[in-house]
């Protein structure tokens, strides 16, 4: 695809710099107004933005590997609600926090294994399977919680997302570090491990991947199960943020996550995408919400702007890749 004049390295650099430029552009947009700039460009505000990004960011880690492998997962919002309810229920029954955390992540993995094995072994469309799981997950969350919010007593998990020292950037909540750490691990897994290369291979050309000996159903199950780990952690973070399990929370979260992955340069037809890009995509979404609130823009303006940004981001990405190729 690369033209002889443009070596692959330069193109990769451009791919990485692209989303960064988008982020800077959005930050610049809100810094134009001097009255808002005084509050917007502060450490305290970036702490808020980072904290608000954590759930979407951890979700995009799972979504990125799924989308790169040519799949999609619409059940994320429901899984986050379900796992946050599981976490709250476990704590409410006085289980130790580490057991509650394991149960939460385990629930995410279990749902991922079901999604992945149905998609892989029964060769069903990811769109359909996860659409079904969206209802199953949300329904189960409401069933387990009795359609009520679950409020466990005070516990250490509440403090993962607790912002301390609110007038300064440091220290950021532990959740931000967890998200960053997981992102670094996933970036390495995607680039440097056999499993990571399988993900790209399956997404780029499933038939070719099968013919070269990759066991597609097994790998797909592994991909969705690993994504389930991240969705479970996102549920844990959601619980920690609200300090309650809410079966109605995170409705439509999957669309925010997919938008973040796509803004970050992934292709919905599979085979391309990066963890770094997705994380920046998640940041762009959070900055947009944050800035719009502080500009005093009515809610509808925010919705329109976020929609426009998604389209522009993907359009620019296409243009960039078109020129490079």
């Amino acid at each position: 695809m690369a033209s002889p004049l443009q070596p692959g390295k330069a193109r990769r650099l451009l791919n990485i710099v692209g989303p960064f430029l988008g982020l800077l552009l959005v930050i610049g947009l809100f810094s134009l107004s001097p009255t808002v700039r005084a509050f917007f460009l502060t450490g305290a505000n970036f702490k808020i933005i980072l904290t608000q990004t954590v759930i979407v960011a951890i979700g995009t880690l799972g979504m990125t590997i799924i989308i790169v492998s040519g799949g999609i997962d619409l059940s994320v919002g429901s899984i986050v609600a379900l796992t946050s309810v599981v976490c709250a229920l476990a704590l409410d029954k006085e289980r130790p926090p580490w057991i509650a955390a394991l149960l939460t992540i385990g629930t995410g993995v279990l749902v991922g294994i079901i999604n992945g094995s149905v998609i892989g072994f029964l060769r069903m469309m990811p769109f359909i399977v996860t659409l079904g799981m969206m209802g199953i997950g949300r329904g189960t969350a409401k069933w387990l919680s009795g359609s009520q919010t679950v409020n466990p007593p005070d516990n250490p998990l509440n403090r993962i997302m607790l912002p301390r020292n609110p007038n300064f950037l440091w220290p950021v909540p532990n959740g931000v570090w967890i998200a960053l750490g997981l992102a670094v691990v996933m970036a390495i897994v995607m680039r440097r491990t056999v499993f990571g290369r399988y993900i790209f291979a399956i997404g780029a050309n499933e038939d070719a991947a099968r013919l070269s000996g990759i066991r597609i159903p097994l790998q797909k199950t592994a991909i969705y199960a690993l994504a389930g780990v991240f969705f479970g952690i996102a549920g844990l973070m959601q619980f920690s943020r609200l300090t309650q399990g809410d079966p109605t929370v995170a409705n439509g979260l999957e669309l925010d996550i997919i938008a973040a992955v796509v803004i970050g340069g992934a292709s919905l037809s599979g085979g391309s995408g990066s963890i770094l890009g997705s994380m920046i995509g998640a940041l762009i979404m959070a900055v947009l919400r944050n800035g719009s609130n502080q500009m005093g823009w009515p809610t509808y303006v925010q919705e329109i702007i976020i929609g426009v940004v998604i389209i522009i981001a993907v359009g620019l990405d296409k243009l960039r890749k078109g020129r490079a190729g």
Partner: peptide
């Protein structure tokens, strides 16, 4: 000083808008 922001129906959204508004004001 601010009366045009809506919290939205879930607590997570209300929490985000609150944090953002308070940072400004």
């Amino acid at each position: 000083i601010s009366s045009d922001q809506h919290a939205g129906a879930t607590r997570e959204l209300a929490y985000q808008v609150s944090q953002n508004l308070l940072n400004r004001f």
